[in-house]
Amino acid sequence: MKDEKNFFSKFRTYMLFAGPVTLAFFTVVIIPFLYGLFLTFTNWDGVSANYMIVGFENYRTIFKDAAFIQSLGLTFKYVIFTVLITNAVAFTLAAILTSGTKGQSFFRAGFFTPNLIGGVALGYVWQFVFNNIITYFGKNIGMTALQSSFLSSPKQAFWALVIVAVWQYSGYMMIIYITGFLNIPKDVLEAASIDGAAGWTKIKNITIPLIMPAFTISVFLTLQRTFMVYDVNLALTKGGPFKTTELISMYVYKKAFTERAYGIGQAQAVILFVIVAIISITQVYLSKKKEVEA
């Protein structure tokens, strides 16, 4: 009797504090997720009132779909380059802007600003830069390489996407690295200097291990964001020229809504979810292991 009452009162307290959040979480995350999972086993086209259960047929179609594999490969390439370059740039900026340079608060704010611009607006701004401004300079200084737009050649359009992503995320990651740098105890650095460590040795053996938590967070954030990118992709290249820059989110969207194969698109989204989950968890697990206390 007492136990029951105990459970009831515990439940009441839980509902009181976490009830609204639990309800919201279930209605906007868990239930749609399960329903989405169910739809991957149907041949629903996205609009019609009736559909049939087709079992694992959608998943089988996906692995036979060369364009899906290609788009996934392109996304991996995009993620690798973007994550590496973004973090390298952010780390370098953070190192410079914590070393006591003049006007460092101004520069910190400046580099952070791109992150405040929404993806679609940013995509259009850069489209204008690539299509009009760079080509204008190319024509006026006579450099043929710059005369045609980056966005009209498949190879360059990919790098245009990487450039914009790096530009967008570096500032944000820089802020995280700066907090990491500021948290390194001065005495440790001083001790290292006295022991004769300088330059790269000091960065490699003291700074990097001590700001490992910042790496964990930054790499996780960039990984997850670049895997899911859609807005910049849409506004900047729209997947073009001729579908060569269709990253996976756009591919899934087009499958589900443009080609009206909702079941297949949803199944692709599930596969994407599994891939991103595995990669992010592995990354967090591995870099957590490398974290050390000062």
């Binding site: 009209s152 498949p154 073009g240 020229p241 001729f242 579908k243 443009t258 080609e259 009206r260």
Partner: peptide, 20 residues
């Protein structure tokens, strides 16, 4: 024709237009 038609043929024509 279907949306897939204009997506696929459109991409092929873009390739041809750009001399790729």
């Amino acid at each position: 024709l279907s949306n897939k038609h204009w997506g696929d043929i459109g991409a092929a024509m873009q390739k041809y237009l750009g001399d790729y």
